[in-house]
Every structure is written in structure tokens, then in C-alpha cells.
Design a protein around this nucleic acid. Structure first.
Lengths: 216, 216
DNA sequence: CCCTATCATACTACCACGTAGGTTTTTTGG
DNA sequence: CCAAAAAACCTACGTGGTAGTATGATAGGG
């Protein structure tokens, strides 16, 4: 009974092993984002890789672990994308929020396969699985709250400074998050007119929309 | 081989029969919105009703038909919610958009169990099923396009009239839709401080956010 | 009293997760 | 450089759960 990885992401891993696991995660993220978690079989993921189930189960104990691995990776990236900006002290609320939204949107487009499944499927899918994943769930929820706190903080700062409308900070945060997160429904990587500059333009457009929605 | 209902919604149905089918749809919507389509078994739906599978399969041929029935119902209601407002000629773009968003948000909260599954799960779930549902899919997609067209029209009118920012109408529409549709992720009916007035306040808040996001 | 809509029970077929070993490739140690 | 061990991966199943069916029971209307 070996102890697979993918829980302790920070552990030092043999780089070969880590690369193979990452390749599996990529394939799973792609498959899940296309057909959904429950409708995707492990064999489907293996087909994407051109291998068999054996390889996948060598790295991940269960299908749920695969999903959790994708989630942790996506959230890690998301926190990296907006965290540094959120903690900058040299920006006013308006510019800080604009930059955060812009980076968040770019991250969503650049890592679409990971972020798509990550956003909403978690509660339903993992709530029904056995409760032996409570620890992982707690870690994911913690990262989620951290991420949302970045936005809550800048909105509250803006309200306190009189830069943002002083209504309900909580709903404003949900509105901003919805503006961005809804992208995974309509944005398709590799679609027509998809390019780096186009993504930048889209991100800037959404950032402008969100900022205008909250400014006083 | 009887011909079950739920495809021809406009047919005259025995009211008893229709009531029973509607009850089943309600239960299925609730179950799907909680655990997701694929993770919910027909027996789960039957348990919610306190009956057995027999009753469900007497009204719906397959599990997919159940899902489609929920979808059609949700879209029908959604079109009823915003359509009349979208076609009013006595409102300027700004007030029309505000009213549409408000009604849309109220609809989402009042029919949360139907709208939750309806929003995004369709492509993944039905794309993987057999292609004998193309007709139903086409009907659903048509209603979706109709719904989105309501928003596109008002946004384009606003831009043409100089009331809205004349940037990318398409992205603005997606931003507005995201603001509202994302509610199914964070709004929980029956949660703390959930009441009619609170829902009105939430809807008004989101409408204000969306309108400010697009006005010039 | 019969007939039909309605629902329950029991059953089948099948898919997909996870496992138990075997086989190949890579690493290690002498 | 070579055996031996370990890692990486594959093949072939066992097993549980679920969609859908076939048949039987019941209740209400004409």
C-alpha cells in the first residue's frame, strides 16, 4: 500500500514523478471541463493520455483525488494571480480593483480547463462522496475564502475611502466575482478571434465594467 | 407503448396527469440542484417524492427527458420574466435594463431549484447522451438565444442612443448576464436573512451594479 | 362490473470504479 | 558493467450501483 502524492503538493517530489502527475492532471482537467466530472470516466482520461487506467491509479487513489488535485492547482494559481496585487499599498481602491479583475480574468482564460470545473462543481460532486475527504475540502474552502477575502478587502477599503458606493459590500463582491467567473460559460479557448491581444481587451473590458459598477 | 408527455407542453393534458408530472419535475429540480444531474439517481428523485421509480418512468421516458423538462420550464419562466419588459417602448435603455435585471434576478431567486441546473449543465450532460434529443436541444438553444437577444438588443439600443458606453456590446452582455447568473452559486433559498424584501433589495443592488457598468 | 390510468415490485443489462497481480523500464549498489 | 530492486505502467477482472423494463396490483370512473 503505497502512499500516492497529490495531497502534499509542497512536498519535494521526484521531478519525473511530478511531471507525470501533472500531465495526468492536465488531461483530467481537459476532459472534465468538456464533459463534466461525473460524465467523464477514468478511462476517458486515460484515452486522452493514450495510456490505460493503471497509470492514473498509480498516481491518484480515487477519481475524487484527481478532482481535488485540479482544484488545488487552480486555486493556487488564482491566488498567485490576484494576491500580490491585492496586497499592494501603492494603489488606490479603484486601480487596485481594476488590476485584480484584469489579472483574474486573464488567469481564467489562460487556465480555462482547470478553472472551469473548479468553480461550481465542487460542492455537489464532493459532498456526495465519502467523508474521508474532509481535510482536503477544508483546505479548498480555506483557499476560496482567502480568495474572496482579497476582493472583500479592496471593496471595503474603497467604501471606507468614499471611492466606492457605500451600499452592501457583500453583494458588490458577489457581483464582481460573477462578472468574471461567468466567463467559463461563454469563453472558449481556441475559439474564433482568440488571441493574446483579444484576451487582454476582454479582460480590460470586464475590469472597466466591474469598476464602474462599484465606484461612487 | 404509450407516449409520455413533457415534450409537447402545450398539449391539452388531463389536469390530474399534468399536476403529477409537475410534481415530479419539482422534485427532480430540487434533487438535481442539490447533488447535480449525473450524481442524482432516479431513485433519489423518487425518494424525494416518497414513491418509486415506476411513477417517474410512467411520465418520462428517460432521465434526460426529465432534465429537458426542467430546462424548458426554467427557460419559459425566464422569458416570461424579462420578455415583456424588453419589449416595452416607453422605457429608455437605462431604465429598461435596470428593470430587466431586476426581474431576472428575482426570477432566479424564486425559482432557484429550476434555474440552478438549467444554466450551465446542459451542454455537458446532454452532449454525451444519444443524439435522439437533437430536436429538444434545438428548442432549448433557440430559447436561450432569444433570452440573450433581449439583453443584446437593449444594450445595442443604449449604445446607439449614446446612453451606454460604446465599446463591445457582446462583452457587456456577457458581463451583465454573469452578474445575475452567478447568483445560483452563492444564493441559497431559505438561508439566513432570506425574505421577500431582502430579495428585492438584492435584485435592486445587482441591477444598479449592472446599469452602472454599462452607462456612459 | 370492467377498463384504464397509475403506481409498486422484481428483474436485467451494463457501465465504470477500483484492485490484483504481471510485465517492462529505470534506478541503485556492488 | 551487471544483477537486483524499485518504480512505472499494463491487463484482466470483481463488484456495486443505476438506468430502464416487464409484470403485477390497485383504485377510481363510466
Amino acid at each position: 500500500m503505497r502512499q500516492p502524492i497529490a495531497q502534499g503538493r509542497t512536498q519535494k517530489l521526484d521531478s519525473k514523478r511530478h511531471a507525470s502527475a501533472q500531465e495526468i492532471l492536465d488531461a483530467a482537467a481537459t476532459a472534465f471541463s468538456e464533459r463534466g466530472y461525473a460524465a467523464t470516466s477514468i478511462d476517458d482520461v486515460a484515452d486522452v493520455l493514450g495510456c490505460t487506467k493503471g497509470r492514473i491509479y498509480h498516481y491518484f487513489r480515487t477519481k475524487g483525488d484527481l478532482f481535488i488535485g485540479i482544484h488545488l492547482q487552480a486555486l493556487e494559481w488564482a491566488l498567485e494571480a490576484v494576491g500580490p496585487t491585492a496586497e499592494r499599498a501603492d494603489l488606490g481602491p479603484e486601480e487596485k480593483l481594476r488590476e485584480m479583475v484584469h489579472r483574474h480574468a486573464m488567469h481564467l482564460m489562460n487556465r480555462a480547463s482547470y478553472m472551469g470545473p473548479a468553480q461550481y462543481q465542487i460542492e455537489m460532486n464532493l459532498a456526495s462522496e465519502g467523508r474521508n475527504k474532509d481535510e482536503q475540502m477544508a483546505r479548498i474552502l480555506k483557499m476560496r475564502r482567502q480568495f474572496e477575502a482579497y476582493y472583500a478587502t479592496v471593496v471595503e477599503e474603497g467604501i471606507a475611502a468614499g471611492a466606492f458606493r457605500g451600499t452592501d459590500a457583500n453583494i458588490l463582491v458577489k457581483a464582481v466575482l460573477g462578472t468574471i467567473n461567468w466567463m467559463h460559460v461563454w469563453f472558449r479557448p481556441g475559439g474564433p478571434q482568440d488571441s493574446t491581444v483579444e484576451r487582454e481587451r476582454t479582460a480590460a473590458e470586464l475590469a472597466e465594467f466591474a469598476v464602474r459598477g462599484v465606484v461612487a
